[in-house]
Design a protein around this nucleic acid. Sequence first.
RNA 1: GGCGCCAUAGCCAAGCGGUAAGGCACGGGCCUGCAAAGCCCUGAUCCCCGGUUCGAAUCCGGGUGGCGCCUCCA
Length: 470
Amino acid sequence: MQKIYIYDSVEKRKRLFEPIHEGEASIYVCGPTVYDEAHLGHARSALSFDMLSRLLASAGYRVKMAKNFTDIDDKIIKKMADTGKSLKEITEHYIKRYLDEMALLGVRRADIEPKATESLDAISELVERLLEKGCAYRTSSGDIYFDTSKDSAYGSISHMIGDEEESRSRVSHTQEKRNPRDFALWKGCDEKGGDVCFDSAIGRGRPGWHIECSAMIEKHFKGDGRYTIDIHGGGADLLFPHHENEAAQTRCATGHEIAKYWMHNGFVQIDGEKMSKSLGNSFFLKDALALYPGELLRFYLISVHYRNDFNFNEEDLLSAKKRLDRLYRLKKRVVASKRRDADPLFKERLLSAMADDLNSSMAMSIIDEMVADTNDKLDKKPADKALKGEILGNIAFIEELMGFGGSDPYEWFQHGIDNETKREIEELIRRRDEAKKEKDFATADAIRERLGQKGIALMDTPDGTKWERL
RNA sequence: GGCGCCAUAGCCAAGCGGUAAGGCACGGGCCUGCAAAGCCCUGAUCCCCGGUUCGAAUCCGGGUGGCGCCUCCA
């Protein structure tokens, strides 16, 4: 079995992946809070862990991945007040939008997609255990806080411990908190709570943010007594306090660590600036998807290693488009052939690159080399059926592992062009072919020029004239 | 104030102690009626200064310049 190394952001080093259960890989990724449209950062996170899951599956692991939707939250409550809509109307809308958009990026669905509203039993049960063990306390207002002083290992995940920082900390010093680091497990219901109050064994209220992940993980996964899951993932911003708090809750309640490995993806910036609504800088995924195919966005977003910062800009995206076009031009040359097994050496190299902490940049350079190499062979032996079949096999493996290259190559180059226009283009090509037959190159070139102005490029091949949208 | 990340050719970007992948752009060539596409060739000693080492872009120390977390956040 392919050895897989992943960078563990807690130990800050690459570690050989050795799962809790032989041949299985359990992953939990922190998903979005569903109160608004998904942005490019959500896409990058989803893409990072989609690559991880594809890698593990390709390497022969049985993968069980969970990605949650936080559907109880202050921001959702605010949205309810702003729009007059119910919690369910809001969260279901954005969950669907999220899933649809991620599907366009080629992100596979998680095996389990738990929601906070559907995990309340597990949550209240976990809070109850924490109360029993003395790791949590109630306040006069009915809130329940986690007592960080009861966890001697608190800080071991993010390494964000320090006594001095408290004076500078921007954490509000709620009087009811015993320690500034303590955080809400459960928020008691008051009149303002409206319809987001739930009855439970620990009283009426709603869960805090961090508790849902710990509860869902304990509910859906069986560990080995030392760890519950293999890999816990999320955006770099979640390392502290979110993941620190999750780990503390699970440790106090169960006596073991929540995850064996921790992975965090880097941030997305827009034109060198932090993404924000106020800057109005192509913030939402839907805006990008309105302009470019999801597959291209995927290709572009994974061209940078997942742990590095990503600076999104149109110029780089366009150069990524040209790079991906090369793969599709190769595919055009072989698509009519019968698929064969991929080149074993190519497969091995691609898998090894990804097995080295998801080195997608390296993987893409290997793909580029394969494209150049096989184009060259095809130039020399245009009728080599075995080669063509193997190339199709290579591309199928790329699609399986990397999630791009699976589209029809002709449609790829005709993205966004309606059938009416296609017919017009083909008619002009016919007229140009006739002109060429009669050696009337002036007319032929005029037609090519005319199409070129519309962004259509022509290329004469042994199989006739092909066209592409630039 | 605490914790941490990053700095590689015009641009994007790998590299994880053994002598700089890949892509885009540029230039030259082959091919082509001419093109496009494809293929081939062409470019960097790795922010600066010290140190460790037979050997450093890669390790250590110090600068400079970006960025992030510590409050909801992918």
